[in-house]
């Protein structure tokens, strides 16, 4: 047990780093799942899409900022396709996501030049290595600081956005689509916009993660949807009573908690290959607990 604790402690910096990076994805999924009420499976494809786009640009010598912007754009494009399929062809949300997710696997492989792996050499300029920012930060803490700042910046931007007219319209679309129609707006277009923003964030998260671990792998998206949904639902369910706490904060804390559970399971001797099972069990547990709570509570008026 002490050994497990020891190894959990050793992994803590990397747990936190990845927790904040996954938080970017959780913030994206918060937008679709929590705000728009849209179950978006595109995430399994757009997460590695960001990784593939970002990593291949980094390897070819592009600056990290360009790699991240390209990842954002690629993710937005993926969300656009899912949205168009859902809204214009009137295909169910789940199927639209599955179709795009499946197609993206091949697209990602193409972007990665046909190989299932891209490793980023140590001497390349990435967000976390060989740049002026990193050398200005204390050694060892640079990665964490950058990850935290990114997650908090995105969170702050989202909080601001949800208070704008467009942000309110997006919230309205998830809350009650009929109100959006009554405002003379096409609720479909609002959904498409939300999907674009969400998947842009998911792809950003993928690109940042690849730079942190200096590795892109084609299968990194498997389970990304479940993982980020689990993060969002952990956060939202756990802090249900804290009405004043913003959903974006809940999503970030959820992502950190998820990542902590993950590290703990590894420290306890489970293998990385077992982790999908752990994720599934964790997700199930949260949903089951949330459901029991709801049954006891009075129905939402």
């Amino acid at each position: 047990m002490t050994l497990a604790l020891q190894s959990f402690q050793n992994a803590l910096p990397s747990t936190l780093e990845q927790g904040f990076i996954y938080a970017l994805m959780a913030l994206g999924v918060l937008m679709t799942y929590h705000i728009l009420d849209f179950p978006d499976l595109t995430v399994d494809g757009s997460f590695p899409l960001g990784g593939a786009v970002g990593s291949s640009l980094i390897v070819s010598g592009a600056p990290p900022a360009a790699a991240l912007l390209a990842a954002l754009a690629a993710g937005a494009a993926a969300g656009l396709v899912t949205g168009l399929i859902h809204v214009k062809l009137k295909i169910r949300a789940l199927f639209s996501g599955i179709i795009v997710m499946t197609a993206l696997y091949s697209v990602n492989l193409r972007i990665a030049g046909g190989s299932a792996l891209i490793s980023i050499p140590r001497d390349k300029v990435t967000l976390f290595r060989n740049n002026a920012l990193v050398s200005a930060l204390p050694e060892g803490a640079a990665t964490l600081v950058i990850a935290v700042v990114m997650a908090l910046a995105v969170k702050a931007l989202m909080d601001l956005f949800f208070k704008t007219r467009l942000g309110c319209l997006l919230r309205a679309a998830g809350d009650n689509g009929r109100v959006v129609t009554a405002l003379g707006r096409d609720v479909g277009n609002v959904k498409i916009l939300g999907l674009m923003m969400a998947n842009a964030l998911v792809a950003l998260s993928g690109a940042v993660l690849c730079q942190q671990q200096r590795l892109f792998e084609i299968s990194m998206g498997t389970g990304a949807t479940v993982l980020s949904l689990a993060s969002v639902i952990i956060g939202v369910n756990l802090f249900q009573r804290l009405e004043r706490m913003r959903a974006t904060t809940k999503a970030i804390v959820g992502a950190l908690l998820y990542k902590a559970c993950y590290s703990l399971a590894i420290a306890l001797g489970l293998l990385p290959g077992d982790m999908k099972l752990v994720t599934a069990a964790l997700f199930l547990a949260i949903l089951a607990v949330g459901y029991r709570k709801r049954k006891g509570a009075p129905a939402d008026a």
């Binding site: 956005f161 208070k163 704008t164 007219r165 467009l166 942000g167 309110c168 319209l169 707006r185």
Partner: peptide
């Protein structure tokens, strides 16, 4: 216009 002006 549904832009980034304050919602309220």
């Amino acid at each position: 216009r549904m832009n980034l002006m304050p919602g309220t």
